[in-house]
Design a protein around this nucleic acid. Sequence first.
RNA 1: GCCGACGUAGCUCAGCUGGUAGAGCACUUCACUCGUAAUGAAGGGGUCCCCGGUUCGAGUCCGGGCGUCGGCUCCA
Length: 629
Amino acid sequence: MKVVLPDNSELELPDGATGRDAAAAIGPKLAEQAVLVRSDGHVQDLRLPLQDGQKIQILTTRDKDDPDALYVLRHSTAHLLAEAVRRLYPGVKIAIGPPIENGFYYDFDFPEPISEADLERIEAELLREIAEGREWNREEVSREEARRRFEAEDEPYKVELVDTADGDISFYTQGDFTDLCRGPHLQNAAPIKAVKLTGLAGAYWRGDEHNKQLTRIYGTAFYDQADLDAYLERLEQARERDHRRLGTQLDLFHLSEHSPGSPFWHPKGMVIWNELEELRRRENQRRSYLEVKTPLLYDIDTYVTSGHYDNYAENMFFVEQHEDEKRLALKPMNCPGHMLLFGSQLRSYRQLPMRFAESSTLHRDEPSGTLHGLLRVKHITQDDAHIFCAPDQIEDEIFACLDFASYLYDLFGMEARFELSTRPEKKLGTDEEWDFTESALRNALDRRGIDYLVHEGDGAFYGPKIDLHMTDVLGRSWQMGTIQLDSQMPARFQLAYMGADNQEHTPYVIHRALLGSLERFIGILIEHYGGEFPFWLAPVQLLVLPVGADHRGAAHALADRLREPGYRIEVDERDDTVDKRIRDAELEKIPYVIVYGDRESDASLAIRERHGAQSTKSLDELLKDLATL
RNA sequence: GCCGACGUAGCUCAGCUGGUAGAGCACUUCACUCGUAAUGAAGGGGUCCCCGGUUCGAGUCCGGGCGUCGGCUCCA
């Protein structure tokens, strides 16, 4: 048989030859360094036979940055971790240990809890294994055989995995440790040149909080110590951009135990907030949204009608009342208020689509342990809107929302990921209704030319949705905007509009927030820009820096001239050196510094941009240039 | 909510096996009046997260609570 190599040459091999045989046929060095076979984008274990005519690429330890090569390396390291843990902690049960982005983990059920201090000795044991040398052997076994072996070893999690695994079952063995695994794996442990155990966490078996919580050990591995060092260095740099750090450094906001999950916005942070609010208001207005304001508190009956009382009560804040008063709760979402507003008058089909926009404050009592800087808060302000429309208007309205969202994210140079979630198992409405609403969303996405992921079964019980996701500086994904189609809530509130047929009809409603919560959006925005906001968002846009005390008067006069058209400008007349004040302006990430001394006049200003680029401009030129930003 | 860690000056952090708290930056004052990333000196500043316990004595040890961080689950 023949296989095709990356340069399109053909390699003649005996029938049944494996990837390793192919590597050996090419050269002994390649055979030694090979880590896996890649074929049409799929990874394949070196130990598996090749097919006649198969196109193959043999990855080696030299492909040290290749994601597939790293994946295999880390997968094998996870097995070594399990071997080490089992040796050090008799009675431990092993669960599952896959490679993940940037590393791997393995889940264990320890007889006694362990703490981070244990990681050190586990890591030492793991390194010892590598130094000692390990080779992996692959074998295929029957389901019965696999089950028998894990039962004999008293590994209940593995037994469960065998029972639910589909396809053939394979085992990988290194040293005296055998694990159920699909592979592929390294030939031996020699290529693992750098390992670090990075963390310890609880994780529910099979990701279900009703199951037992296991102990997860995270780690990472590389083909080269320098790559591990570089990775840790990158992590350190990412922390520099963390919005929590920058929020303090740039004096934008702070969080306090006096009100967990509710940011205190400082004057400079508020500038960004207000600019976003202005953007929201202006763009909503351009798209015929109608701004409204609805109450923060509602009686329980309202939440019973909306369904929040039954489905969301544990996330809501209830207000203590005098005994003779109605019980009230803070709104966790704007929809009930907008339903009541729509229902307060008789509506005609001629008014549809009717788009109510509001960005008032929402409160959600998030589970402790889930709060996270600005990215997960209890005090939420969405750029929210509810669009009431007739069935034949849904697709166009969804399209317009998608278009609007793309406009906003483009404005910031952000790339959001779009994700469509379809009907869940527990749902209201018929399959025909879901067919109709899901296809409206898909059509709108396709028409707008948006690539999207599909999460089958992840929709809300009342309708399908499209979510927008962004990634924070540490690689974690956060939901930003959401566009949800709902046929249930209008009916629950008995909303109706008079149709052309003089009959009452129930409108559909689209719940949509595009930036999502302003708190979260600003958090992501801070990290996106690393604190270096574009001119229009910068809390302080220009700083005038008088060289000596004699120049203070002129500096203030200049600042007044620039403040007039609305620019945010400050004068730094502290008794410090120019160097010192330049440095502070740089740390504050102010876009423009104007140094003003004996050499300057309105006809000739010394402008310094962030990072040091200098130029000379007249005041008129400067004003003209700023107007284009 | 769950697992693990952490909580010391405005910020970043040090404080060994228990003996009554420290640095850098920031702040104030003084001198210097300065040309594109830190001028020098002096000074002020702390219920060591909270409550309880052990102890002659707790920032340090133990228990509980609150908050934060890394994950899990859940969510914008």
